[in-house]
């Protein structure tokens, strides 16, 4: 049986979102490298996580080099700072030629501006707002819960 080559991914930021993604992808069999500037952040990783971690700032070129980004199949930027994600994602795409690059951009205005420029982004604010609106609409029709909440 041929051995399937493990897909390699780099995740910037090991906060709630980054660590959750890293743990999930690692459990699914991906080889994951997580980068965070704060050593304590790696405590967020679950026991399922079997990848590697690097302490450093992803806006530093040398740090990205250390993550073996050149061999990575995908790069996900999840740090709490939009500008860090926007910059590191573009560096990953253009200078390390990573095929799949996604950046978390929390500010909906900035998210829109960068999607127009061709960056693949995820805006948690817009997504959760949409979900809230959906649930709100659903709630109106759900009579049994009335009076309970």
């Amino acid at each position: 049986m041929p051995i399937k080559k493990q897909r390699l991914g780099v995740i910037a930021g090991c906060g709630r979102l980054g660590s959750y993604l890293a743990s999930k992808l690692s459990a699914l069999g991906y080889s994951i490298m997580v980068v965070d500037i704060d050593e304590k952040a790696f405590r967020n990783l679950s026991v399922e996580f079997s990848g590697f971690h690097i302490i450093g700032d992803v806006t530093e070129f040398k740090v990205l080099e250390r993550t073996k980004l050149g061999e990575a199949d995908f790069f996900i930027a999840t740090t709490g700072e939009d500008n860090v994600n926007i910059m590191s994602a573009q560096v990953a795409k253009r200078m390390f030629t990573v095929r799949q690059v996604i950046a978390r951009v929390s500010d909906p205005k900035r998210d829109e501006a960068y999607s127009e420029l061709g960056l693949l982004t995820v805006c948690p604010t817009a997504i959760s707002a949409d979900v809230f609106l959906e649930k709100l609409a659903l709630e109106k029709n759900r009579s049994p819960l009335k009076g309970w909440l």
Partner: peptide, 26 residues
């Protein structure tokens, strides 16, 4: 650096500022 980077990109892509200069630390 990340802030200077996005500032310059915005200024170039959306406002077409003719001359843009950035300071970088690294």
């Amino acid at each position: 650096d990340q802030d200077n980077f996005t500032i310059c990109q915005m200024a170039d892509a959306y406002f077409q500022v003719p001359r843009i200069l950035a300071l970088v630390n690294d």
